[in-house]
């Protein structure tokens, strides 16, 4: 289990980094907690590896009180997300979810941007971003564009991120009136989810966002009161078998319970 050969690059600026992304069979190395195992298996064999860990300004957690907006750099490590005072104050549900990623040693290295770009359907963060209505900043040599999380994820390990683009930051507008709940069903601590859900309650409206159910995170809006019955119906199409449907439903109901009344 040794990786195939590659050329290593360590750019010092974002401009330099996005320029390198034009190289053939190029991959971005962030925390590497998903990529390096795949490379060790030789299931991923980039010819060029662009290490973005040393790019300045990508590991920030900033709160903009005027806009009510949290800005997270792509290199924010999961452990920082789980423990950062600003995240815990303004988006406690995100901090809680980040604490469920892998184990301590994985969280200490894995990054927000890496997890989003990898787009594992059973991962916590992509669904969190969809649930929170986040938007992502994608940089390339031709400039930057912002994409909503809901549009970013296309399917199994697939996103709209172009080969020459780098995800550099995430912005989340915090809705102070919303109540949040999170629940994940996993076989062991650190395992990918059998199913997980975020629930957001705003007045009589409930939004549920799942991960580990289907090829990408998705959200369903329901009216409070009809939740349980409606869920059965929604999940008929989303999950292929009886157990998966059950987990999706239970995760949602428990997330909802945690969102309070």
């Amino acid at each position: 289990m040794k990786p195939a050969p590659f050329v290593y690059h360590r750019p010092r600026t974002v401009e330099e980094a996005v320029a390198l992304l034009g190289l053939p069979a190029c991959k971005v190395l962030a925390g590497g907690q998903s990529l390096v195992p795949l490379m060790n298996f030789r299931l991923s064999r980039p010819r060029h590896l662009v290490d973005i860990n040393w790019l300045p300004g990508l590991d920030g957690v900033e709160w903009d009180p005027d806009q009510g907006r949290l800005r997270l750099g792509a290199l924010v490590r999961h452990q920082v997300l789980a423990t950062h005072p600003l995240v815990r104050r303004h988006l406690p549900v995100l901090a809680e979810a980040a604490g469920h990623i892998g184990h301590w040693a994985i969280r200490s290295r894995g990054t927000l941007g890496g997890s989003l770009a990898h787009a594992d359907p059973a991962a916590e963060l992509p669904a969190a971003m969809v649930a929170l209505g986040a938007r992502f900043c994608l940089r390339s040599q031709s400039g930057e564009r912002w994409v909503d999380a809901g549009e970013f994820f296309q399917g199994l390990f697939t996103t709209v991120l172009a080969e020459d683009e780098l995800l550099t930051a995430v912005e989340v507008s915090v809705d102070q009136s919303a109540r949040w709940g999170f629940y994940e069903i996993a076989r062991r601590v650190g395992d990918f989810a059998l199913a997980g859900a975020y629930a957001r309650r705003r007045g009589g409206v409930i939004d549920l966002t799942w991960f580990g159910v289907g090829p990408k995170p998705f959200t369903v809006e329901l009216q409070a009161g009809e939740a349980e019955a409606a869920l059965e119906q929604v999940l008929q199409t989303a999950a292929e078998d009886v157990a998966a449907r059950q987990w999706a439903k239970v995760a949602a109901m428990r997330a909802l319970q945690r969102a309070g009344r």
Binding site: Y8, L29, G32, D51, R109
Partner: peptide, 18 residues
């Protein structure tokens, strides 16, 4: 790594410079 537990099998030595 910088005091925090990390998997050394998921880090290229070259990337650990610094």
């Amino acid at each position: 790594i910088d005091g925090v537990p990390t998997r050394s099998c998921l880090l290229f030595a070259k990337a650990a410079e610094g």
